[in-house]
Design a protein around this nucleic acid. Structure first.
Lengths: 319, 319
DNA sequence: CACGGTTGGTAAAAGCTTTTCTCAGGCCAC
DNA sequence: GTGGCCTGAGAAAAGCTTTTACCAACCGTG
């Protein structure tokens, strides 16, 4: 039996007797034959391998994205190189070169911030590049969460359950997503309350609640927080002051970081950025590009989803 | 210029004029030539690629391990496939097969529990397998944290700062590491206090403190907790009861999960399992095996390290 | 019966490196 | 002057798969 006959039998290609084909397949199965993907890739120019480049050391954003990518591509036989580059341009270049040497079919760049670039230029590679949750280049395909829509979701929910004095406690103003969420907040809630910019920590949430409740006058009846950590800090501060959550004040977070959101007392209603779905779409897109299928460049905003837990109370306006 | 001459020039092999060699290298640099790792791997039987298999979806343990592996292997030109298999045997098999097809030089198996196997048999592969933070097979190389030593570290520290009534609040007893830590706790602290087995959550830590302080009699002056989440719940409960941490009660956690330990009030002194170092050693070991260097099979316990923050107080006994 | 078409299978090339072998030429020594 | 040795470079094989081209045999038909 010649090698080429076996190859054609296994790939259902060429002309040959059905009986021969079956026999080859059976024997291949018996001896546990598996084609060498390296040799196959050498010929087909496809390695069925992609690279995921990230500067998000902690993995808060990368892991769900990775899970989505893997989920979408495992059916296509694609494996994923994960490269954590920690904002080190030299390290990034080493990893990119290593991946290119290994003939990856494409690269997905991801990060921890929508408005920052990875410290390496991926714009003139001869393999397709897709950006996910990080700033892309001109004419690239970029996937990101729709923070405006997510913020609107949260604030409209609060308004829907009857909250009227909604404060917005959030992170540093130089974050693009912070400005976008604040914009949506203003659109829905008006400009009665200022946006409270700070840092992404529990202590900031705690501190700002202290300030708000110490000063005289009417208090907010809802807090829309820029992430779950701030929300947790705020919820803790409220509880310590004897303010009841959610009876007196509703609290909404952002990120749906389970370890924070689900452990808060009470568990946080929060906005989920659907990063896994984002990863899935990024994966399918880089695959499409690798296969030469045309993909429209541009920024795709994926909708967020509100995860309702117990920190808001009220009746759902929709149910 | 023949291809073989160029190859020899670039690899500093074969005999040739120094001038020719230099010229080839210069031109290769100019045109940005990079050898195709697939073709190279086809010949050398080395793909400079390894696989990391994990069932730790959340990445709490996998990410540091991954960082260590990558850190150790990037200098050797090795890239890492990350495969999250979520305890799904079929998915695991798909990933393993895909990696084997791609001729990985080795596989590192990691998980979220020392005493559980991954849902896939890796014992008869023709590539080396190293286990890190998961149960290995007979005659394999396994890296794990030394939980006994870590627990001793914590309890001795508490004893060293003068604590005498040290309670141990921990997770489910069926965890091997729980029993090991409890054993070390008993060794050092004696059997005055029972070990309080429960679950790995903040609420369990909270609840157990409520119980302890509600019942009459002498209270513990230190809590050694099985993980940082339990410690955080306990610290919160103490604060709510007006018990001062660390003045009245010292609290120690386990894991050094920054997002929990550093955000606790006060920030937690905790035991770090040095997972990055564990990953580094696992990476170097799988590389050694791939290169045919002999490695003694067996279980290697890596020491833990105590991270001192503000939840203990007292004077360091060593400084 | 001979020829065209079909069928089932083999041989060979291509993909990119590395390694081993071979070869041509130059130089030295006898 | 010629044989042997050394040097620098090229040819070829190997690694594994896929694809194209090719070939032999067979069948049916004019």
């Amino acid at each position: 039996m010649s090698i080429s006959t076996a190859s054609k039998a296994l790939n259902d290609t060429g002309r040959m007797g059905a009986e021969t084909r079956e026999r080859v397949k059976r024997i291949a199965g018996e001896i546990g034959y598996r084609p060498n993907a390296l040799a196959r890739g050498l010929l087909s120019k496809r390695s069925f391998t992609i690279g995921l480049l990230t500067n998000d050391t902690y993995g808060r954003f990368t892991l769900p994205v990775m899970a989505g990518i893997s989920d979408a591509l495992v059916d296509h036989g694609v494996s994923v190189f994960l490269c954590a580059i920690e904002d080190d341009p030299a390290l990034a270049q080493i990893h990119v070169d290593a991946m290119l040497d290994k003939q990856v079919d494409g690269i997905i760049a991801t990060g921890k911030r929508l408005d920052r670039r990875l410290p390496v230029d991926l714009s003139n590679l001869h393999v397709p590049v897709v950006y996910a949750f990080t700033e892309g280049t001109q004419n690239s395909v970029t996937f990101r969460s729709d923070d405006e829509q997510g913020a609107r979701l949260a604030v409209e929910w609060l308004a829907g359950i009857g909250r009227r004095r909604i404060a917005h406690i959030t992170g540093p103003e130089d974050f693009f997503s912070v400005r976008e969420r604040a914009g949506a907040y203003h659109q829905v809630a008006g400009h009665r309350e200022p946006v409270l910019y700070g840092v992404w920590s529990e202590s900031w949430g705690h501190e700002v609640v202290e300030q708000l409740w110490k000063r005289p006058g009417e208090k907010p009846d809802a807090l829309f927080c820029g992430n779950d950590q701030i929300a947790r800090g705020a919820a803790d501060a409220l509880r310590e002051r004897g303010v009841k959550v959610p009876q007196d004040v509703s609290v909404v977070g952002f990120d749906n970081w389970e370890i924070v959101a689900a452990q808060t007392r009470p568990p946080l209603t929060t906005v989920d950025m659907e990063l896994k779905e984002l990863g899935r779409q990024a994966g399918l897109t880089v695959l499409a590009l690798a296969e030469g299928r045309p993909v429209e460049p541009g920024v795709r905003k994926l909708p967020c989803r509100l995860i309702v837990r117990q920190s808001c109370g009220g009746k759902s306006p929709t149910e």
